[in-house]
Each structure stands twice: as structure tokens, then as C-alpha cells.
Design a protein around this nucleic acid. Sequence first.
DNA 1: GATGAATGAGGATTCATTCAT
DNA 2: TATGAATGAATCCTCATTCAT
Lengths: 213, 213, 213, 213
Amino acid sequence: MPEEKSGGGTSTVRPRRRQARGERRIAQLLEAAARVFCTSGYTAASTSSIAREAGVSPGTLYQFFPNKEAIAIELGDHLLARWHTTYGEALTQAHLELPLAELLDAVLDPLIQFNFENPAFGVLMQCTDVPGKVTLEHENLHTSALARVEEILRGRLPDAEEADIKRIVRMTFSIFKGGLDLTLAAAPEERDTYSAELKTVLHRYLDPIIGSA
Amino acid sequence: MPEEKSGGGTSTVRPRRRQARGERRIAQLLEAAARVFCTSGYTAASTSSIAREAGVSPGTLYQFFPNKEAIAIELGDHLLARWHTTYGEALTQAHLELPLAELLDAVLDPLIQFNFENPAFGVLMQCTDVPGKVTLEHENLHTSALARVEEILRGRLPDAEEADIKRIVRMTFSIFKGGLDLTLAAAPEERDTYSAELKTVLHRYLDPIIGSA
Amino acid sequence: MPEEKSGGGTSTVRPRRRQARGERRIAQLLEAAARVFCTSGYTAASTSSIAREAGVSPGTLYQFFPNKEAIAIELGDHLLARWHTTYGEALTQAHLELPLAELLDAVLDPLIQFNFENPAFGVLMQCTDVPGKVTLEHENLHTSALARVEEILRGRLPDAEEADIKRIVRMTFSIFKGGLDLTLAAAPEERDTYSAELKTVLHRYLDPIIGSA
Amino acid sequence: MPEEKSGGGTSTVRPRRRQARGERRIAQLLEAAARVFCTSGYTAASTSSIAREAGVSPGTLYQFFPNKEAIAIELGDHLLARWHTTYGEALTQAHLELPLAELLDAVLDPLIQFNFENPAFGVLMQCTDVPGKVTLEHENLHTSALARVEEILRGRLPDAEEADIKRIVRMTFSIFKGGLDLTLAAAPEERDTYSAELKTVLHRYLDPIIGSA
DNA sequence: GATGAATGAGGATTCATTCAT
DNA sequence: TATGAATGAATCCTCATTCAT
């Protein structure tokens, strides 16, 4: 038992050996959940359908998640983590000083790409039914790249009131969400055009606000 | 069905006597549905709760609607009709020739007002679960005042390709939907600021496209 | 509708006609529940089994009871009401002044008889799982004939401390419950002997306490 | 099975080395089960919760017990054995010839003490759901100290019929169980008063039967 | 029409038990 | 042995829908 718990003794190196199977199952279940959520939405998705999609029995699902909501939340966290791992580092301080157009490229391209690869992300973010949504959106808004807009705004508009900043950020995020949906729903050959259009919208909206800086 | 609903050609003519009670019932049920949809969303709303809210029995509900979806669709149609009756006429040809800023006022103010008064409209429009949503949005896009933007664009950009027009219209509509939600969700004293912000976004977006015309 | 709601106009005479069926169903369900509770106990009894025993679908059960507990509570109330109707009046003030032996006859005989005819009563009273049990036992203890013991004790032992009274009452009730179970479980031809034995126990216990009065 | 559990004839001989761990596990599991049964009752207790309480996995539990019921039965046997080891020997033939009051002290005090220290014993004895309960009660009735009452009765009432003896014993046991529960449930400072009351009841009941002998 | 009872499939969740490692 | 993953039937309960009155 002791030799199983610690591999090298340095840190928490694979705390248990047996969970390899479980770990795989969790990933499997989350992938299944992502698919089902995308197809049916959170509310209409049933835990049985998720289990079925994952090829396991309902009981197995509940061995890893206490309830449906937990799946959504865990999936959100997972996707957020994947975002940070894959694209999060891409936005360095350097980018923030770019001209708006390039900043938008730097921010939006990975976001769109990520949402294209992980459509469940959008589903969870939109979903009004998951109480964890707050968490998700919160996390997203404040931790993810988009939240940088807030920083930028705050930085470039030091005199602006809190409410104004908030409004602009919300509006920006709202535009982004809508445009993202359009882009993802567009025919493959139109995708770029749609994402360009979204950037246009945001550029025209934000340029008069922060462009002068 | 159509010949049962309307006696002559005008659809709002008083129906025949014996259907008076039925019409009232339908209105009652639709109002109840609107309230329940707003509270719980379409998926989570139960037909029993709608019936209860309307003060009738479930059986009665099914005497007028074949199923839950039909309620949503009918409610959508109803709201659309109400829109046309109340505000639709307000947008005359004259408005279309106004400068963009004033056009936006003329178009958005009633829309926002209407959505404020009929929050179920937004719920149905957003809802991913109602198959009729497509219908709704379609109807909305092509029948409602916002669709005039398409006309305007087509008028002012005769050389533009169909796909471009469509994209701009979609983007405009998407921005509107998002901004509308923000506006409706805003605190009462901020509502005007938010709707002004929405207009700003749309103005900055559309001005370069149609403003010069 | 108006002619359906009020029959004579005087009072609440059969408030609705349609519920006759429902009323019957409720009785049916309560009887089924009584049988199932007796067979399996409250915890092990499933709502489906109750519905099945009643010959209806699970959904029907839930049309009348919000959950399993409510069935137990309603059943308890029902049995209590039946007790009061059938035997409750039997114990007049006159009885309370009888010699102990006759008092015990007057009190125990109907109780035993009632429990024999309604075995679910004992099951519910014993059951530790129904939160409503408190209600039931409370009601029973304070409303039913046995509670008179408390009155008698208080009357005949005016100097006794509250705690002493309580202890004696509890002990009496405890003896009764145990003896009742034995009596009900006994072979038919032994039933009387067992109930006589129970009376003997109680008589010997209580006579030194209140007999002298 | 018996030849595996005990090497020779005495059942509490140290088992063979390699089963030492197993014995410990079993004890661990039984203790956990006792705790969980006391908290939730037999029916509501889940095997997983017992395993968790014991700090082992469900699989391990099933390595020692074929099913949940077996745990309860084994626990009952265990407690019975503990009873015999700890208190059982205390009741020598000498006690049986004591006057009733002292006999009751001699018999009841250890029983109450034991039940106080091992509350699971009462839970199992009361529980209607464990088929093994019969076993337990049976065992208890015939092996435990209380069963001596039967011997005494038989000894002092040689003319009594079997059924009468049985009835008196049952009644005595029933009174004991009820009084025990009251005593255990009583506030600490009232415990002695309640146990004294129980003895009073039994004394008054049994004295006319065997006291004169 | 209107009512409310009836249905039964389906959903979330639990749990005794078994199995692979 | 020990672990924890896997199972699937069973539980409570809901709900869209239908039916008898």
C-alpha cells in the first residue's frame, strides 16, 4: 500500500494506480456529456443518455459524478483548463499593447478556434439552467482571455466609472457570443468571413473607446 | 383551420359567438404560457403548470392545443401579431430614409419596448428547444421591422452579394438580440444607458456600410 | 358550473361531483398502503408496490399524494379518525371512575380490537422512519383513550412530579405496545389469554400507584 | 465453515496466523456496521456506507460477508458472544435462588449496561427487516441470561402448562424490551430512575407468580 | 367544453452485488 | 487480498398526454 501511494516520494505523483481506468472513464463520460449537451442542451440531456453515449451503465456515471449538474460543471472546468493549456498562454502582455485590430485577432482567433473544437463550451456558457453557469461564465469572464478586455479598458479609461466599464465589457462579450454562434453555424467556407465580420463589429465598437490610446 | 379562425379576410374580426369563450380561453392559456415560459423556460415549463397558471385543467389546455410545442408556436405567432398590430405599422417608408441614428431609434425603441412588455417573446426567440423557434425567428426576421434592415441594405448596396447581405443582417440581428438581453436584464435606471449602448454598437457597425449612401 | 358546485346552497355539500372517483381512489390507495406497510414496513414499502396493490399506475398515486411520507401520514390520520369515530366515544367520564380492573377493560379492549382490525396502525406507530410518526404518536398519546391514563394519574397523584407522571405514562404505554404486539401475534385462540395477561401486567403495575384512590 | 473459524473446540482460540488480518477486518467491519445500523437502521444502512465507515472498499466487505443480511446476523452473533463473555458468566446458579428483587437486579443491571454499551444489539433485536432477527431473538431468548426466567418459572411452577410459561416469558421479555428502550432513551440523569421503574414493573408482575414459591 | 383522474414511459439517483486488476 | 470500477434493477417522482364523466 505505501509503495502504491507514492511513486517517487517527491510530490503527488499519481496518488493511486487503480484509477487509470476511472480516469479514462471520466474523460469518456465528459466527452459523451459534451456531445449530448451539444445535441440536446443541458436541460433536455438525460444522465442515461450520457451514460449510453459513453457506453456505460447509469450507475457507472454516478460513481464519478454526484449528479447531472456536477457533470456540466466538471465539463466546464475541464474545457476551461484545456483552454488555458492550449491557448491561454498565447496572450502575453505584449499582445495587449498591440493596435486594436491585431489585438482582436490575437484574442478572437484562438477563442473561435477553441469554440469550434469544443462546441460544448458555448452550450454550457449560454445555458441558463446550470446553476454552475455562474461559475463558468465568471471563470470565463474573469480568467479567460476575453477578460483582458476589462483590464485594457480599465487601463485605457482610468477616469471611466465602474458601471461604464462593466457595460462596455458586457456588450463586448455579448457581441462576441452572438458573433461566435454565427461563425460556428456558418458554412465552413464562410467561417472566416463571419469571424472577420465579428472582428469588424468589435473594432468599430471599441476603436472609438480605446483606439485613441 | 384558417376558415375557422377568421370569418372574412381580416384576421381580427370578432369570431362567431360560440367561439367567443374558446378565444378567451386561448388568450388566457397563452398569457399563462408566456408567464410560465418566462419563469421556467420552455423545456422546464410543464403543461400542467401552464394550465394551473391559466386556472384551467390540463384537459382543457389540450382541447385547444395538440401539445406543448403548439402552445409555444401559437404564442410566438400571437406575439408577432401583437407586435405588428401595436408597433409594426409605426415604421413607415418615411422612416427608412432617415439618417441611420434616427432610423435606429425608430426601429429599436419600439422593439425594446415591446420586448420589455412581452418578455416571453425573447424567451421563445432564444430557446433552442422549440423547433418552432426557427419559424419564429424566420417569421421575425422576415416579417418584423428589423427585417427592413435587409431591405435597406439591399437598397443601398445593390452590388453586394446575397451572402454579404445575409451576413450583415444576421450580425445585426445577433447584436440586437444580445444587446436586448442586456438591456432587459439591466437595472431599471440603467436600461436607457444600455439601449443607448446597443444603438451605439449598431451605429458604428452599420454606418460605414450604409451610412455613406 | 354553478349548479355543479353547490347542491343545496346551505353549506359545503359535496363541493365537487367529479371527485367521487378520486375519493374512492384515495381510499383504495390508503387501504393498499396499509396492506403494504404491514407486509414490508414503511421503509421497505415502495410507492410502486402500493400503486400496484391498489391496481393503479404510479402516476395515479402521485395525483393524490405528493410523496411516500404523505401517504403514511394520511393513513395515520385516517386510522386515527376511524378510531375516534368507532371507539373514541366509548370512553366516557364515567369509565374513568371505575375501579382499575374495569377501567383497563374499558380502555384496552377497544384499543386491542381496533389494532386487530387495523394492523397498519401499529406499524405506523412503531415506525421510526416516518417523521410524521411524532404526529401520530403524539396524537395518539394525547388524543386517544390511552392518554386518559395521564389524566387519571394527574388526578389521582396531585403531588407527583411531572417527571414521575411522564415516566409512568411512558412505561404504561410501552407495556401496552409490547403486550399489544404479543396479543396480535398470538394464535387466535390465545388472543384473549394474552390480552388478559397484558391487563394483569398493567393492573399489577398501576394498582399500587392509583389503586388506592 | 465452522472448521475454518475455530481450530479446536473453544471458539475464541487465537486463529491461525494468516487469518489474523482477516479477523481484524471482520471485527473492523462489524464495528462499523454496528455504528451505521445504530445511525440509520438496518434497512437504510448501505453496504457502501458500512465499508466506508470501516475504511475499506465495498469489495473488501464482500470478501468477508456474502451479503448485507449476513453482516447483521454475524454482528448479532458477535454481540451475543460478547454478552456471554462479558456478563453471561455473572449469573450463576446462586443468583437464581435470590429473592425476586435481587434476582431482577442481578439479571437486568448487566443487560441494561450491555445494551447501553452496545446499542446495536437493541437495533438488531427490534428490527423487523432482518430475517436473522428471529435467530437473534431466539438465540437471545434461549441462550441469554433472561432466558433463565424461563427455567425459574418452570422450576417454580411445575404444574403450569407450557403455553402459560411461554406467555409469561414472552410478556416478561416484551416488558423488558420496552423498558430498556425507555431507559436508553432517557436523559443520563434519569436512566437509573427508569431502570428502577422497569424493575418495579417486572417485580409487580412476577412476584405474584413466582414470589410466593 | 370542462374537469380531473389515469396513464406509463422516462428521468435522476441509489445500492447490493460482482468483476477486473 | 484489496481496490474501486461496473452493473442494472429498483426507487421515487414527473410529465406530456389521453380518457371518462
